[in-house]
């Protein structure tokens, strides 16, 4: 107690002043740190781990065997991989229909009628319910013998179609189920966007004689660009990571014809019969590469927009 506390307190002063002088520089990093650490541990590092695993032959339990690019070589010669890839492309293209459809409904709902909030929430409803429930509902809808859709087709043509058992229609049947909530999602994005459309510009355009399609195309849509951008991003990513509906409605069947890459990856690496971690990882890497094309496109566009401002 009686000992002079000078050295300690001087050290303290030094550290405090170091903190003072660097505070402004350090504070943002400190605030970012928790998020960055989480992102690194749960996203960045696993990406590289997956790439690493994809060079191995590994059943997830025993020894890993280094096989270099063999998993990728096998992918090139794997019909199931091409089926999945083709289905992913179909998903991507058809899923984008959610954007015009969501826009139409949003414009339709963007009016002041009594009870409009109720109607809006009803249209939004499919997005709120879980994908699992959506999948179940649609598989009953398509079910042979008792499904509404099956019965309807039977009534019209005399011959029912079991959509989920037919390799020609199965992917489209699942995409239709996926579009239902996706349209609702896009609709909400556009509804908030429409709230921000400047009324004076609409007024001015109206005075200049613009209406209908021209009004939509030249006046409304340009103002909705941020909403459209987000809608495209979520739809493209939603299409590429489609998994739950495939898993629930068909399990990739019939005979693997409704597989998509994410489902095929799961099947190979983690499912009941899948013990091929390396091969699954290779599929994941391919899927990641495809996603990267889009994601970097989006980031580039965002960066450009920021720079323009």
């Amino acid at each position: 107690m009686t000992r002079p506390a000078l050295p300690a307190s001087s050290a303290e002063r030094v550290s405090r002043s170091w903190w003072r002088s660097n505070q402004r520089r350090l504070a943002p990093w400190l605030f970012l740190a928790p998020g960055m650490i989480m992102f690194a541990v749960y996203v960045i590092i696993p990406i590289f781990q997956s790439m690493w695993i994809s060079f191995y032959d590994w059943d997830g339990l025993g020894e890993k065997i280094w096989i270099g690019l063999d998993n990728y070589r096998e992918l090139l010669d794997d019909d199931a991989f091409y089926t999945s890839l083709k289905n992913n492309v179909i998903w991507l293209v058809l899923y984008l229909l959610a954007i015009p459809a969501g826009l139409m409904i949003a414009i339709f709902l963007n009016q002041n009628v009594w009870g409009m909030r109720l109607y809006k929430s009803l249209f939004f409803f499919p997005f709120v319910i879980s994908q699992v429930v959506v999948g179940l509902m649609f598989s009953w809808f398509y079910a042979p013998d008792f499904g509404l859709f099956y019965r309807l087709i039977e009534l019209l043509t005399g011959q029912g179609i079991a959509v989920l058992a037919d390799e020609r229609y199965v992917t489209y049947g699942i995409i239709a189920a996926g579009l239902w909530p996706q349209i609702a999602y896009v609709m909400i994005l556009y509804l908030t966007g429409l709230n921000n459309v400047a009324p004076d510009q609409v007024e001015a355009a109206r005075l200049d004689g613009a209406r209908g399609w021209r009004m939509l195309w030249y006046v409304i849509l340009p103002q909705l660009r941020p909403a459209t951008f987000i809608a495209v991003v979520v739809t493209v990513i939603g299409a590429l990571r489609s998994f739950d509906l495939v898993s629930i409605m068909t399990d990739g069947g019939p005979y693997g014809s409704s597989r998509v890459l994410s489902f095929y990856m799961y099947e190979q690496a983690l499912s009941e019969y899948g013990y091929r971690m390396g091969y699954g990882a290779a599929i994941a890497v391919v899927l990641f590469a495809i996603m990267m094309v889009f994601i970097s496109g989006f980031i580039w566009k965002m960066w450009r927009d920021e720079a323009e401002r």
Binding site: Y142, A143, P144, A162, V163, L164, A165, P254, Y255
Partner: peptide, 8 residues
């Protein structure tokens, strides 16, 4: 065999 077995 039942025709739509793949969906059942």
């Amino acid at each position: 065999i039942t025709k739509d077995h793949a969906a059942l």
